[in-house]
């Protein structure tokens, strides 16, 4: 393997690893569930893409033929990461999890948990599931 190619792969690997770590740091550091969702959905997806790119190039070189099946995992994660984030956020809203005190637009949580339009947030205040 040429030195420049090896260096490039190493760089991509380390960038991917750093993004994975940043996603997990966000999970620990951020103040409430809604902000914590951002770390894993975004940083982790990009980190995985970097790692799988490196893996694809390495196995292409060692096998002598182009290996692209790693992209299947990337594709799968790109499709599923927003769906699972959405489901977790939905669950949190339906369970009336209170957001961080500095969050703007907190009055939207109540209509969102009833799947109502944002205008009638003062009509029903019990916040129970319909």
């Amino acid at each position: 393997m040429a030195t420049w190619l090896e260096g490039l792969i190493a760089l991509v690997l380390i960038i991917g690893g750093v993004f994975l770590l940043i996603g997990s740091i966000g999970l620990v550091r951020l103040p409430d569930l809604y902000t914590r969702l951002h770390g894993p959905t975004k940083a982790t997806t990009l980190g995985m893409a970097g790692l799988l790119l490196a893996s694809s190039v390495v196995s292409s070189i060692t096998q002598g033929s182009i290996s692209v099946h790693e992209w299947l995992i990337t594709l799968f994660l790109l499709i599923t990461a927003p769906v699972s984030a959405n489901m977790i956020a939905k669950t949190a809203m339906h369970h009336d999890l209170t957001p961080w005190k500095r969050t703007k637009g907190q009055e939207l949580v109540d209509p969102a948990s009833r799947q109502a339009p944002p205008s009638d947030h003062h009509s029903v205040k019990d916040g129970k599931l319909p």
Binding site: Y34, H38, N86, A89, K90, A112, Q115, A116, P118
Partner: peptide
């Protein structure tokens, strides 16, 4: 992050 969609 998109969280919820209204029923309508």
């Amino acid at each position: 992050v998109s969280a919820e969609i209204s029923e309508d």
